[in-house]
């Protein structure tokens, strides 16, 4: 995989802005992002009596990172969230890609209506859909006599209802920006539409697909609203787990900023790691390269 966006022509491309400007701006961005995060780490490491009330970095101890695991069932929350968020990301990207392609490449009667409805779905606040959605799920459940509420699958489907409109919307927008000539070239070479789709369009769309997959993942990982109604004790996700912890911590009497921050860091780690791994996709310049080559 290439990490370079554009195949560069030596001598011409190197005339970018001065390095110090880049570093200055980069440093400013990094500071803005990292200071609050560093503060979160600092507080997590502070002893409970002073956590959150001082910036002094003394008497630091990683205790809270150990205490948190026994305070709540963090491992199980993490496992549930990983499964749910990953499948949501993969499924909505794949399903969404097909729909987006149709939307981008074919003109048909209800096209604009569909596009509008995509945005309508995406823009509807979850809190509005929650009540009616639950009614429907209960009806389905009663009709088929199978307990679906509380299952991973149902939660994934629910998240897909939010991630799909976004994915389709985003990908169809992206696909329209792709030059049509690659497809035409493939058609001339005798490839079927499906072959073109899989062999040419899909790789070209990969950067956008990764982005939508990430968004879907984050959406599922961050949700608290739906998880609070659609999970049961053994399918709880991190969002719910955190909420639970916040409430019990507050009920215990004294503030527990250190433990809370430790829990926050831990719940963020899997997502961060995943991002770092797949970030190469974001960086890779598949599109430009392929059009050229």
């Amino acid at each position: 995989m290439r990490t370079d966006i554009r195949p560069s022509k030596p001598g011409v491309r190197n005339r970018g802005p001065a390095k110090w400007i880049l570093y200055l701006c980069g440093g400013a961005f990094a500071l803005v992002v990292l200071l609050p995060v560093a503060y979160m780490f600092l507080v997590a490491l502070q002893p409970i009596e002073v956590a959150g009330s001082t910036l002094a970095p003394d008497r630091l101890s990683p205790r809270s990172f150990i205490d948190v695991w026994s305070a709540i069932d963090l491992a199980s929350y993490l496992a549930n969230s990983l499964v749910i968020a990953t499948i949501t990301a993969l499924a909505s990207s794949l399903v969404g890609f097909g729909a987006a392609y149709v939307l981008a490449r074919f003109k048909f009667r209800f096209r604009n209506f569909l596009r509008l409805s995509l945005l309508a779905c995406y823009t509807t606040p979850g809190i509005v859909l929650l009540i009616p959605l639950y009614v429907i799920y209960v009806q389905i459940q009663n009709a088929v006599s199978v307990q679906i509420i509380g299952s991973h699958a149902l939660l994934i489907l629910t998240y897909m209802s939010f991630s799909l409109p976004y994915t389709i919307w985003m990908l169809s927008g992206y696909l329209t920006t792709l030059p049509a000539d690659v497809e035409e070239a493939a058609a001339i070479d005798g490839a079927t539409r499906f072959q073109t789709l899989v062999r040419i369009i899909l790789p070209l769309t990969l950067p956008a697909l990764v982005v939508t997959a990430i968004f879907s993942f984050v959406l599922a990982w961050n949700d608290v609203l739906f998880a609070s109604v659609l999970t049961k004790n053994d399918t709880r996700t991190v969002g719910i787990g955190m909420q639970l912890f916040v409430s019990t911590a507050a009920d215990g009497g004294l503030p527990q900023w250190n433990n809370l921050m430790a829990a926050g860091i831990i719940t963020a780690v899997p997502a961060v790691v995943l991002f770092i791994i797949i970030q190469r996709y974001l960086i890779s310049g598949l599109t430009a390269g392929s059009v050229k080559g």
Partner: peptide
């Protein structure tokens, strides 16, 4: 999961 709940809302 979207249109019908929206109507219900």
């Amino acid at each position: 999961v979207s249109y019908i709940p929206l109507l219900l809302a």
